[in-house]
Simulated scan of single mutants.
Amino acid sequence: MNGRAILGFITFLFVSGVLYAVGYVVDIKIFTFYYQQETEHQVKTGGSMIPIFIGLISGYILSKVLPKVETS
Protein backbone atom coordinates (compact mmCIF):
# COMPACT_ATOMS: atom_id res chain seq x y z
CA MET A 1 0.00 0.00 0.00
CA ASN A 2 1.25 3.43 -0.80
CA GLY A 3 0.89 6.51 1.37
CA ARG A 4 -2.18 7.83 -0.44
CA ALA A 5 -4.12 4.61 0.15
CA ILE A 6 -3.24 4.58 3.83
CA LEU A 7 -4.22 8.23 4.20
CA GLY A 8 -7.49 7.57 2.37
CA PHE A 9 -8.25 4.64 4.70
CA ILE A 10 -7.44 6.73 7.79
CA THR A 11 -9.71 9.48 6.45
CA PHE A 12 -12.50 6.94 5.92
CA LEU A 13 -12.18 5.66 9.49
CA PHE A 14 -11.98 9.15 10.98
CA VAL A 15 -14.93 10.64 9.08
CA SER A 16 -17.13 7.59 9.67
CA GLY A 17 -16.22 7.53 13.36
CA VAL A 18 -16.93 11.23 13.81
CA LEU A 19 -20.30 10.94 12.07
CA TYR A 20 -21.30 7.95 14.20
CA ALA A 21 -20.17 9.79 17.36
CA VAL A 22 -22.22 12.84 16.37
CA GLY A 23 -25.18 10.55 15.76
CA TYR A 24 -24.95 9.12 19.26
CA VAL A 25 -24.27 12.42 21.04
CA VAL A 26 -26.96 14.45 19.26
CA ASP A 27 -29.28 11.42 18.84
CA ILE A 28 -29.60 11.60 15.06
CA LYS A 29 -31.03 8.28 13.86
CA ILE A 30 -29.49 8.40 10.38
CA PHE A 31 -26.01 8.66 11.91
CA THR A 32 -26.32 5.99 14.61
CA PHE A 33 -24.94 2.54 13.99
CA TYR A 34 -27.68 0.69 15.84
CA TYR A 35 -31.23 1.48 16.71
CA GLN A 36 -34.21 -0.55 17.82
CA GLN A 37 -37.88 0.18 17.37
CA GLU A 38 -40.36 -1.97 19.22
CA THR A 39 -44.02 -2.15 18.30
CA GLU A 40 -46.79 -4.31 19.67
CA HIS A 41 -46.16 -7.20 17.27
CA GLN A 42 -42.60 -6.81 16.06
CA VAL A 43 -39.14 -5.51 16.78
CA LYS A 44 -37.27 -3.61 14.07
CA THR A 45 -33.53 -3.14 14.36
CA GLY A 46 -31.10 -1.60 11.99
CA GLY A 47 -28.23 0.73 11.46
CA SER A 48 -27.24 3.51 9.17
CA MET A 49 -24.75 3.07 6.37
CA ILE A 50 -24.73 6.77 5.53
CA PRO A 51 -21.59 7.57 7.62
CA ILE A 52 -19.76 4.71 5.92
CA PHE A 53 -20.70 5.99 2.46
CA ILE A 54 -19.69 9.55 3.37
CA GLY A 55 -16.39 8.22 4.77
CA LEU A 56 -15.70 6.23 1.61
CA ILE A 57 -16.44 9.21 -0.61
CA SER A 58 -14.24 11.54 1.46
CA GLY A 59 -11.37 9.02 1.47
CA TYR A 60 -11.65 8.59 -2.30
CA ILE A 61 -11.73 12.32 -2.94
CA LEU A 62 -8.73 12.88 -0.67
CA SER A 63 -6.71 10.15 -2.41
CA LYS A 64 -7.47 11.70 -5.82
CA VAL A 65 -6.89 15.33 -4.82
CA LEU A 66 -3.72 14.76 -2.76
CA PRO A 67 -1.43 13.89 -5.70
CA LYS A 68 -2.45 17.08 -7.50
CA VAL A 69 -1.70 19.18 -4.42
CA GLU A 70 1.69 17.52 -3.87
CA THR A 71 2.87 18.10 -7.44
CA SER A 72 1.92 21.78 -7.64
Rank of each mutant, 00 (worst) to 15 (best):
T39F: 15
S58L: 11
L56H: 01
Y20E: 02
F31T: 04
E38I: 14
G59Y: 09
E40G: 14
V22Y: 05
I52M: 13
S16D: 07
T45M: 13
L62G: 06
K64L: 11
V69F: 14
F9G: 11
Y20W: 11
L56S: 06
G8P: 05
M49Y: 04
M49P: 00
E70L: 13
F12T: 08
V26G: 00
Y35R: 01
K68P: 01
G47M: 05
I28F: 04
F12P: 03
S58I: 10
V69Q: 08
V69C: 09
I57T: 11
Y34H: 10
P67Q: 08
F33C: 00
Y24H: 04
Y35E: 06
H41W: 09
L19R: 08
G47E: 02
V43E: 13
F9V: 13
S16Q: 08
I52V: 13
K44V: 15
K44I: 15
G46K: 03
Y35W: 14
K64Q: 10
V65F: 10
R4D: 09
T39V: 11
E70Q: 09
N2I: 07
G55F: 08
Y24W: 04
E38D: 14
V43M: 14
E38S: 14
T32N: 02
L62I: 11
I54W: 12
Y24I: 03
R4Y: 10
Y35T: 04
G47C: 07
D27S: 02
F33N: 03
F12A: 12
G47R: 00
T32K: 05
G55M: 11
K29A: 03
Q36R: 14
L19S: 07
T45E: 15
Y34I: 09
A21S: 05
V18C: 11
N2K: 06
S58A: 14
I28C: 00
P51I: 04
V22C: 06
E70S: 06
V43K: 15
D27P: 01
L66F: 09
Y24D: 07
T32Q: 12
K29S: 07
Y34A: 07
I57W: 12
A5D: 08
N2D: 12
T71S: 12
F12C: 09
S48T: 02
Q37S: 14
Y34M: 06
I6K: 10
V18E: 06
V69N: 04
E70H: 05
F31S: 01
E38T: 15
H41G: 11
N2M: 02
Q42F: 14
I50W: 03
Y35A: 04
G23N: 02
G3C: 03
